[in-house]
Amino acid sequence: MSAARSENPAGAALAADTFRAEGWYKLRRLLGSWQGLTGMVLVTLFLVSAIFAPLLAPYDPNTLDIPARLSGPTWQHIAGTDQLGRDTFSRVLYGGRVALYVATIGITVSMIFGLLFGMLAGYGPPWLDNILLLLFDVIRSFPTIIIGLAAVALLGPSLNLILAIVIVTTIPAYARLVRTSTMALRNTEFVIAERSLGVTLGGILWRHILPNVIGPMFILAAMDVPVVVTVEAGLSFLGLGVLPPTASWGSILNEGYLLIRQTPWPIVAGGIPLVLTTLGFTFLGEALRDIFDPRLGKGR
């Protein structure tokens, strides 16, 4: 019996210490690499700016000031104003909230369902595996943006529709990952031992499989955030995402594109956060993979 499973309180404390020490070690490694550090800084910036947008934004993002329309960067409006005289900087900050909302909810819900379906497919009977796999592959065979365009044409633009599309199209990716890991685990000795001791299916999945498959999921999730953010921005750019006057980076870019001959500032202001967020999450995902995926480390 391993130390972690011991009933001895001293042993449990020791295990917790080891775990904490390992956590600190990994965090130090993460911040020690330039990719990890840059990623963390950019992601923190994104999170802080989005969460605290109402405090940071100098103006209400939807207040019109038509006489001040299309001004370049000034001390009053550091990123200029748009066609209706709204402050672009404030709109960019609020646009981050839309991106954060879609990314957080989209990725979290997809992860939960991905885990559930993936474990069921990997651990359950072969017929269930086949049905789920077929379903995953059918969904994955559609390009996300095209489903998005079709759904919006039928149901009209809305943020929640984008969210639903993101969730539905992301679940299979996670589920497939979890399924493979679960299949690798289902015939390992500790799982067989648990089964022979009469542990319920739920117990095995929750206590033994889940902790082993969830690590790679987080890495994948970090890498998926930019994809989700760009899907939202892409659909909003096409006028099929958020409804006016809500600011989203995509809709700011769209307005900027229409005005590109008059002023470059909206494009710059809407493009920079999109680029930085994408870079931030990609770097973070890469760094996390380097640390948490031991096989990759040895290969180098």
Binding site: L64, L84, P157, G239, L243, P244, P245
Partner: peptide, 19 residues
């Protein structure tokens, strides 16, 4: 539409713009 939306908000009418 967005200008109308903002103008009608001043009299307490919430407008949803659907392009």
């Amino acid at each position: 539409a967005q200008i109308i939306q903002s103008q009608l908000a001043q009299v307490g009418i919430t407008v949803k713009v659907i392009p």
